[in-house]
C-alpha cells in the first residue's frame, strides 16, 4: 500500500518520526533509577565529572584480574621447576597489558560537553552560511536602494569547490550573491554544491532565458553563467521575490 506513494522526506515527516520515537516509548522512569540519582546527588563534595560506574565493566575487569593472577601463578610455578632459570622464561606481554586496564585513564573521560575533535569554537564565524572572506573581491556596496552589503564570505564545505559571496540585507530581507572561483563548472553541479554550502537542497529547478531558477528552503534563487563563471543570487531570510532577484541580476551582475 505504502509503496504506491513515493516517499518524500519532508521536515514534517522527520518531526513526526522523532515525536513518535521519543513520545511513544513505553519505558517508564523507574523508581530504582530515581533513588540512585537521588543518592548520588545527596553525596556531598562530589563533582559532576566522575565516571559512570558500570557493573558489567567491573565484572569484566575482575575476570581479567583472575586470569592474570592465574597466568602469573602458573609462570612462577614453571620458573620454580628444577632445571629452569629466570632467563628461560618470558612474561607474556599480554599479561602486562591486561594489568594495565585496571588503571583508570583520564583520557577515557571527556567533559560532558564532549568538544568535537575536529572543530574549535570560532566566534569570528558571523554567518552560518560561510566564513568571513579575508581577501574579498569587489562587491558593490549597495545592490538596490536599501539592499546594503553586510559582509563578504567564503561558502565552503569540506571536499567541495568553494565560492566567494557577499551578504546583502534590507531590513529582514537578506540574500547572498555568490560566484564560482573557477570557470567551467557545470551550472547544475554549481547549484548542487551551493545547496551543500547553504544546507538546503536546491529544488524546483527551471531553466529559462539563460538562467536557472530554483528554490532553497522555499526561497527563490537564480543562477546564471558569465564568461564560464557561475553566479547565483539566493534569498536567505525574509521574502525577496524572484522578480527582484532577476532585476538585480539584470542591473548589477553584468
Amino acid at each position: 500500500m505504502a509503496e504506491r506513494r513515493k516517499l518524500k522526506l519532508t521536515e514534517d515527516l522527520i518531526r513526526e518520526a522523532l515525536k513518535v520515537e521519543f513520545e511513544s516509548i513505553e519505558i517508564p522512569p523507574a523508581d530504582r533509577i530515581w533513588r540512585r540519582i537521588e543518592s548520588q546527588l545527596a553525596k556531598p563534595g562530589t563533582s559532576g565529572r566522575e565516571r559512570t560506574f558500570f557493573w558489567s565493566r567491573a565484572a569484566a575487569v575482575a575476570a581479567v584480574c583472575l586470569v592474570v593472577v592465574a597466568i602469573g601463578g602458573l609462570g612462577i610455578w614453571w620458573i620454580m621447576q628444577p632445571g629452569m632459570s629466570v632467563a628461560d622464561s618470558v612474561v607474556p606481554a599480554e599479561s602486562e597489558e591486561s594489568v594495565g586496564i585496571m588503571e583508570a585513564s583520564d583520557e577515557d573521560w571527556q567533559s560532558f560537553e564532549a568538544p568535537e575533535n575536529e572543530i574549535a569554537d570560532d566566534s569570528t564565524a558571523v554567518s552560518p552560511f560561510g566564513e568571513p572572506d579575508p581577501d574579498p573581491p569587489f562587491w558593490p556596496p549597495e545592490l538596490k536602494p536599501g539592499l546594503v552589503l553586510q559582509e563578504a564570505i567564503i561558502l565552503t564545505t569540506a571536499g567541495e569547490p568553494y565560492y566567494k559571496g557577499a551578504i546583502y540585507c534590507r531590513g529582514d530581507i537578506c540574500l547572498i550573491w555568490a560566484r564560482s572561483e573557477e570557470a567551467g563548472e557545470l551550472i547544475d553541479r554549481f547549484i548542487d554544491h551551493l545547496g551543500g554550502h547553504i544546507v538546503f537542497p536546491p529544488c524546483e529547478r527551471e531553466k529559462a532565458n539563460g538562467m536557472v531558477q530554483f528554490t532553497i528552503d522555499g526561497r527563490p534563487a537564480l543562477a546564471w553563467q558569465e564568461d564560464g563563471f557561475n553566479q547565483v543570487l539566493v534569498g536567505i531570510s525574509g521574502s525577496p521575490s524572484l522578480e527582484e532577484l532577476i532585476e538585480i541580476k539584470e542591473k548589477e551582475a553584468r
Binding site: 513515493k6 516517499l7 522526506l9 552560511f129 569540506a158 544546507v199 537542497p201
Partner: peptide, 29 residues
Amino acid sequence: GTVKSKLFRARRRLADLLELDEEAVCLTD
C-alpha cells in the same frame, strides 16, 4: 558552519537510507 554541514550530511544520509532519489530530498514544510 559545522552544524550546517552535519545537518546537510544527515539529510543526505537519511535520503540514502530511505533509498530516495535526489528530488525527494527537497525539504518543505
